[in-house]
Simulated assay, not measured.
Amino acid sequence: MPAETIDVIVTSPPYNIGLSYRTYADRREEEDYLDWMMEVAASLRRVMRPDGSFFLNISGSSAQPWLPFELVVRMRELFVLQNHITWVKSISVGEESFGHFKPMNSQRYLHRGHEHLLHFTLDGDVLLDRLNAGVPYQDKSNIARRGHRQDRRCRGDTWFIPYETVRGRSEKFDHPGTFPVALPEQCIRLHGRKKAKVLDPFMGTGTTLLAAQRMGCSGVGIDIDEDYVAIARRRLVEDWLDKTDQ
C-alpha cells in the first residue's frame, strides 16, 4: 500500500488468548506475539497520514492480564498514545445490569466487562471532532450556563457499547472476536474527516468496513481467512442494497 494514504485505522487483532479462529492459531509464545504485532504496527505507521488516527481494540484475559500493557509499552517506539478509551461491554448500575455478561466460572476472577480501545497518533497532536462523537446534555441548563452553542458535549473516554444479543456463534458469523458496528463508527466520527480512507488489517467479517460504508467513507480490509472475506463482501453488498432500496 502507498505510504501516508490512510486516515483512520480501526482494528482488533487476535488477543493471543486461545480463541478458536479457523485459520489462525491464537496461542503464540508471548515474545513471538509481541514481535509480530510490532511488525504489523510498523507497517500501519508507514501507511498512516501524518494527521491519521489508529484505534487498536485489544484485551487480555483474566489469566493473562499483562499482555495488552506489554504491547502498549513497546508501541511507544512508533506512536504516541493520544487517548485511552475504555470500551464498556456490560455494566451494573445499582441493582440493574446492562449489556451481555459472558459466563464466568472461576471463583478467582471478576467478570470482564470492558476492553481497551487505544487511540494512537504519530505525534499526539491530532485534532478530533469530539462533538461529532458526542452526546446531548442531560441537564439542558448547562448549554446556556456554560456558553455552549449546541446541545452536545464530549462523550469522554468511557464508551458503553453493548453487543446485540446473540444465541450462538452462527449469529456472529462463526467468528470468535467480532465487535459491534457502533464501535468503529464512533472512532470514525471522533477522527472527524469527511470521506476518510479507513483500514482494518484484521478485517474478520468486515464490521469496520461496514461502518465506513455507512458513513460515506472508503475502506480497505485485510484478512487471511477466505471464508471471513466472503462474509465481509456479502455483508457490504447486502447493506448497500438495503440502503439503495430505502
Rank of each mutant, 00 (worst) to 15 (best):
P14V: 06
V126I: 06
T23V: 12
C154T: 10
L127M: 15
R145T: 11
V40W: 12
Y109V: 10
I6Q: 07
H116F: 10
D32K: 12
M215D: 09
R234G: 09
K197F: 07
M75D: 07
V229G: 02
T207D: 07
T208S: 08
I188T: 10
D225P: 03
R108C: 11
F55Y: 13
A232E: 00
Y228V: 01
Y15W: 15
F55A: 14
T11L: 03
V73F: 11
R46E: 11
G52R: 07
E115Q: 11
Y228W: 08
M48F: 00
P136S: 04
Y228M: 05
A144E: 09
T11S: 06
H191M: 01
S59Q: 08
D227S: 13
D139K: 07
K140W: 12
P180D: 04
S62R: 14
T11V: 00
I58E: 05
Q64Y: 11
I17N: 02
L78A: 04
A133L: 02
H148P: 02
L131T: 10
V181L: 07
Q246P: 01
P136V: 00
G124D: 06
S62I: 05
S61H: 09
T178K: 13
T244D: 10
I161A: 03
I85A: 03
Q213N: 00
D129G: 06
R167D: 11
R149K: 14
E185R: 11
V40P: 04
W240R: 12
F98N: 00
G219Y: 09
S20F: 07
A63R: 13
D157V: 12
R235Q: 10
L78K: 03
L209P: 03
L34W: 01
A212H: 04
T165Q: 13
R112Q: 15
D35T: 12
R145D: 13
L56Q: 04
L190Y: 05
E30V: 14
A211Y: 02
D242I: 06
F120P: 00
S141C: 05
I143M: 00
K243N: 10
L117N: 05
N16E: 00
G99I: 03
H175Y: 15
R169N: 08
L81H: 00
Y15N: 08
P68L: 02
E29H: 15
T5S: 15
L81W: 03
D200E: 10
E96F: 07
G134E: 12
R235S: 06
W87K: 01
I224D: 12
G156W: 01
A41W: 01
R108H: 15
G18Y: 06
V135L: 07
I231P: 04
T121P: 02
R214Y: 05
K102G: 14
S141T: 15
P176T: 12
E164W: 08
H191F: 01
T23A: 13
P14K: 09
D157A: 10
Y24G: 04
H84A: 15
F69I: 11
